[in-house]
């Protein structure tokens, strides 16, 4: 068994070192969001992987022309946009929970979450930008 330096304990609810509970339902809403987005993602992601990995030769048929053909249809544009946002937020919120659970010091926790939030913003904004400005005739 590994030995740990910090005691595996939770501060007493009224201890002076424990910050007062914030009057916010954020964690409740994030809990609900994980479940609702999970159901939607189940269909979007498994459908996406079925199309991309198995149908019509799978990954071997994917190239620029294939993407251009798909994104000519609003259906696949909306599909990919919703999947991007839900996956980014669902995965990001999941990682936030993991960081909160395993960080040993507040400083590590803060910086890991900053890195996480920057990554989420980067991929969601970049992905949205690409979807809205895609140009099939780019050279």
């Amino acid at each position: 068994m590994t030995t740990t330096e910090a005691p595996l304990s939770v501060d007493k609810p009224r201890s002076s070192t424990r910050p007062a509970a914030r009057r916010s339902n954020f964690e409740l809403y994030s809990w609900i969001f994980m479940r609702l987005s999970g159901v939607v993602l189940l269909f979007l992601v498994l459908g996406h992987m079925l199309i991309m990995l198995f149908l019509d030769g799978g990954v071997h048929r994917i190239n620029f022309a294939f993407v251009a053909g798909r994104w000519a249809s609003p259906f696949w544009q909306v599909w990919d946009l919703v999947m991007l946002w839900l996956a980014g937020l669902h995965g990001g919120n999941g990682l936030r929970t993991v960081i909160n659970d395993y960080s040993r010091s507040d400083r590590t926790r803060f910086w890991l979450k900053m890195l996480l939030y920057c990554s989420i913003v980067l991929i969601v904004v970049l992905g949205t930008y690409v979807l809205f400005t895609f140009d099939p005739n780019i050279s």
Partner: peptide, 15 residues
């Protein structure tokens, strides 16, 4: 997901 959004974003660079 992180890697995949970055690689797909290359459609905006060049075919």
């Amino acid at each position: 997901l992180f890697v995949h959004v970055l690689d797909t974003a290359l459609v905006r660079v060049s075919p």
